[in-house]
Each structure stands twice: as C-alpha cells, then as structure tokens.
Design a protein around this nucleic acid. Structure first.
Length: 588
DNA sequence: CTAGGGTTAG
C-alpha cells in the first residue's frame, strides 16, 4: 500500500501536483504557460505524459503555434504524442496542421492507426483536399485499414465534402455494415451538394432496411426538403420526428424552422421557434431570415429587436438576414440604422454580403446615386461582382440607362463568362430603344459561346416533386397542361390581364422561338398543380431563377380566377399571390 | 505511465 503511494507521487505520474495543475489550467493559454514554467523549473520537462497533455491542451486552447513549438521541443515524439496531436488539431479546427503532423509521423516511421486515419481524413474533408485525401485513402488500404468502419465512414464524408459523390457512394455501397453515422454522412453529402432527391432516396432506403434514423439524419433530410420546397414531404418528416419521440435539439429545431420557412409557411416556422427551449444565434438568425425571404420585413425587424433585448448576441450572419429583410420590404430607414448599428454597437465589420444588401435596398428604393456612392467608397477588393450586380438590377428596375451601361460594362470586364450580365445589359439597351446595341450584346454573348441559364420550376404533389422547364414536353401530361393553361390564360385576359412585353433577350433567342414556346416554366408548373390538387388548396412553386414581370402579373390574375393562393419561391425571395396581389407589393 | 473515432442547423 505504502509502496504504491510512493510510486504515484513521482512528478510525471498522472496524480502528480504538476499534472493536476495542468488539468486545472485546462485549455487556457495563459494558465498553460504558467504551468509550463513550473514544469521546466521542477525539472519534469522530460516527462512525455506531461508534455503530451500540455500540447493537446495548448491545441484545444486554440494556439496552434504554441502547440507546434512545444511539439518541436520534444526530442523523440512517439506514436502516442502524434496521435494525440493529430486528433486534437483535427478536432479543434487546424486541418492543415493535422496534415503537417501526419507527415511528420510518417517521417519518423511511426505507423498510423485507424484512429490516426479518421482524424487525418476528417481534416482532409474540412479543407476539401481531394488529391491529398486520395493519397491518404491509398495509405489506408496499404496499412490494412480499408475495412475499418470508422475509417470508411470518414472517407464517405471526405469524398462528399470534396464533391466527389460518385466516390462517396461507391465506398458507401461497399460498406458491409453501415452505422447511422455512415448513413448520415451519405445523406448529408447529397444534400450539401444540392442532390436533394438522392438524399431523400438514401433516407428511404435506410428506413426500408430498418436502420433507425437519429436527429442528425432528420436535420439533413429536412434540409433536402427545404431545397426542394417540398412541404408535404417536410411535414411527414416532421411527423416522423414526433413519432420517433426524438428530442428536438437546437439543430433539429432550426432545421424545422428553415424547412417551413423555405416552403413558404412562416407561421408554423414561428411556432417551432417559440416552442424551442434552447435558442442560439443560429436559430434566431434562421427565423429572421425566414421572415426576410418571405417578405415580412417588419416581423423580421421586430424579432431582431427582441433578440437584441433578450436573445443571444447577433453576429454578421444575423445582420445579413436583417438587412435582406429591410431590402425586400423597402424599410430603408430601418436598414440604414441596422447597418450603422452593426459597427457602432456590436463592433462588426460589414462584409460583401452586407454591402450587397445595402446597395439592393437603396437601389430598389430608387436611391441610385446613394447606392452608387456606397460602391465607390468600397475598397477594390470589397467591390465584388455581387455588389455591382445588385447595382445593375437597380439600374434596370429604375430604367437608368446611363448608369446601367457603366455598371454593366464594368461587370462584363471582370466577369466576361457570366451570361447573366449580358442578358441584363441587353435588356437595358432594349428599354432605351437601342436595338443595334441589343444585337451587339447578343453577338458578343454568342461569340463567347455563352448560353442563358435554363429556367425551371418544381412543384410537389402527393410528396413527389415534378420539374417543368420551358419547351420541355417530356412530361406525360404535357398536352393537358398546355390546354388547361391556354384556357386559364384566356380567363385571365378576360379578367383584365394584359401581357407584359417579353424580355427582349427572349425574343432574340432563335432556338427558343423555334419551339413556339408560349409559357415560362412557372406557368406550366402552376397549371399542373391546379389540375392535380383539390379546390382551395394553396399552390407552391420553386423556381431556380427570378420570375419575369409578365409571369408575376399573370399569376396575380391566376390567383383571382382560380381563387387559389399561389406561392412562388424564386431565386431570391417568396411571392405570395392572393386575390390578385402579391406579398412583395411589386417591390422585387 | 497513457485515450480514442466518423454525421447535423443560419
């Protein structure tokens, strides 16, 4: 008994005073450096256990350079030290350093373990280092860890995050037993890369095989529903969450808020928000952003006020949401105040996205000079194409020919490969009646073999989403849809609808004219929805581009003659059409 | 002398 006591009081054992001092210091740089001093003074600096603990704590404290200095002071680092370092640097967000330590480890001819690989692969995933990750993958195989399920799951995540979904799926399919985490990786991988349908497919496959989904699974599946604007499916997933008796944590709650908001149902989103017992910045920001994209500017600002009063501290993302809300709702005064507040009260520096919101907001309100002034005051690296594009939109909206041309020419110079700029410039020339210039811009675009982005719209009916694009006649009920739409449009005309002249770029697209296309994709999707759903049910459409003025006008009339609420989510925001008017108040 | 992994929300 006494001998044992003696044995553990040595300076390098876990129970030693110095070791306990280290644990007490925790991940705090100052405290660690003090203990480090004690270690040196007490002569125990040769103890590996102490140094290893000190090094990993330094890493956790966020000081990677101190960590590296300490590491370099260790004469012969062993595999325990390397694994601890690799794990810590990977976990605490220093992926490049993880790779550095990994290379060092190999240099010392120390064999990595499956634990080493999971951390290294995670770091490769964090920086989307595809080439490097592939090398590590081969190394995994050479070292005989190819069938370790943790390593495999990490590799699935790595390939997903590096956007090589093919490789991720191939690995995933070959996994003999897939844990929930592996399923989650695959589902999230698809969702994060915009493959919502595939994400949902894998989710269904998972359930067919009887694997219990967890809250992480639902977070990703709900995100996929959000992308699709698939409210029916989203609701059924929500029911799943409830039926599985899962605890709705912050991430899951936030995911539900986003799903309902991105499907155009803000009031349920708000109910979820109110029902959550833990709400962090992300949850608040998601709710504010939900109000913003749906055009509920004052509710967004109101919620932001509550947040400032008794919520978490807003960050730069929160401010983007609030400013976007102001821009979409024409709340110029509130927007200006918020923009100033950001710096003065919170010490946050406005970035590109905030400037885009401000230019957009001022521009929409017709304050073109002020918007342009704001751009001119930006530094060269701050005046990004996104900011100029917002300016260009404002010029077109207010038919400011002279400024529009200047802005567009700048954009064509810095982004000659973006077809959107040509379309916009051509439209501006058309508005000014400069048809010669319209032709010139069109030829320029053709000369650079750029094509306008194809527009498409989706609609969910009975938990299935259908895609429509202009001129696409692949749908089995195309004829019925067109026939019904013709009828509907004549009813609209009787009710007073007058077509808004097509955007000129459409007129000049010969290829498109050949198809004798009558309707943009949103009209097709709406017609299909009206045919397929019961009277009185709201119609929800998601469009990948912005709606044109003519469609916007036509849908107002559709909402009257069909007595339906029609909700369109376009690239930027929502339009809720009801009884002949739109929630955007034609301010978009 | 020693511990431990891969997945999720704005």
């Amino acid at each position: 008994m006494e001998a044992k006591q003696l044995a553990v009081t040595g300076s390098s054992t876990p129970q030693s005073p110095v070791y306990r001092a280290l644990l007490r210091a925790g991940p705090s740089l100052r405290a660690l450096q003090q203990v480090h001093g004690h270690i040196v003074v007490s002569g125990s600096h040769r103890s590996r256990a102490l140094l290893t603990k000190l090094i990993t704590l330094a890493c956790e404290a966020g000081s990677i350079f101190y960590t590296r200095r300490l590491f370099l002071s260790v004469p012969k680092p062993d595999s325990f030290l390397f694994n601890s370092l690799i794990k810590a640097s990977s976990k605490f967000g220093f992926p490049q350093h993880t790779v550095f330590f990994y290379h060092r480890m190999l240099g010392f001819r120390i064999a990595p373990s499956s634990y080493t690989f999971t951390s290294v692969i995670k770091s490769c995933a964090d920086i989307s280092a595809l080439r490097l990750g592939r090398c590590v993958h081969s190394h995994v195989l050479v070292c005989g860890y190819g069938s370790d399920s943790f390593v495999q799951a990490a590799l699935v995540t790595f390939y997903s995050k590096s956007s090589d979904l093919g490789a991720a799926r191939k690995l995933f399919d070959k996994m003999p037993d897939r844990s929930v985490v592996a399923w989650n990786s695959m589902i999230s991988g698809y969702e994060q890369n915009g493959f919502s349908r595939e994400a949902i497919e894998v989710f269904n496959q998972m359930r067919e095989l009887g694997v219990e989904p967890d809250s992480t699974t639902f977070v990703s599946v709900l995100a996929a529903c959000s992308q699709l604007g698939a409210l029916g499916l989203g609701c059924s997933v929500h029911h799943n969450v409830i039926n599985n008796g899962l605890h709705v944590n912050v991430a899951l709650g936030t995911s539900l808020i986003i799903m309902y908001a991105r499907c155009g149902n803000v009031s349920i989103a708000r109910e979820i928000f109110d029902s959550m017992n833990e709400r962090n910045v992300i949850a608040w920001t998601a709710m504010i952003s939900g109000y913003a994209t749906n055009g509920y500017g004052s509710q967004a600002v109101e919620l932001f006020c509550q947040m400032r009063a008794h919520g978490p501290v807003p960050n730069t993302v929160t401010f983007v949401a609030v400013l976007a809300a102001c821009a979409h709702a024409g709340l110029v005064h509130e927007g200006r105040e918020t923009y100033a507040n950001m710096r003065q009260e919170y010490g946050l520096v406005p970035g590109v996205e905030h400037h885009v919101c401000m230019v957009d907001m001022l521009g929409r309100a017709g304050l073109l000079t002020e918007a342009y002034q704001l751009i001119k005051e930006l530094g060269p690296e701050e005046a990004t194409p996104a900011v100029w594009t917002a300016m260009l939109g404002a010029c077109k909206m207010h038919k400011n020919f002279d400024l529009g041309v200047i802005v567009a020419e700048h954009l064509l110079e810095v982004e000659p490969e973006n077809p959107g700029h040509y379309v916009m410039l051509s439209n501006i020339y058309a508005l000014a009646g400069r048809m010669d210039r319209v032709e010139m811009v069109r030829n320029m675009m053709m000369g650079r073999s750029l094509r306008k982005k194809v527009g498409y719209s989706t609609i969910e009916v009975n938990q299935k989403t259908y895609l429509f694009s202009m001129g696409d006649k692949s749908h089995p009920e195309t004829n019925e849809v067109y026939q019904y739409l013709d009828e509907l449009m004549s009813q609209c005309r009787e009710a007073g609808y007058a077509p808004v002249p097509e955007s000129v770029m459409h007129e000049v697209e010969e290829e498109e004219r050949e198809y004798a296309l009558r309707y943009h994709s949103e009209k097709l999707a709406i017609a299909f929805g009206l045919l397929k759903t019961k009277d009185g049910m709201a119609i929800r459409i998601v469009k990948n581009l912005r709606m044109c003025e003519d469609c916007h006008e036509a849908i107002k009339f559709m909402s009257v003659v069909t007595k339906r609420e029609i909700i369109v989510r376009d690239k930027l925001r929502f339009h809720h059409f009801k009884d002949g008017s739109c929630s955007c108040m034609d301010y978009w």
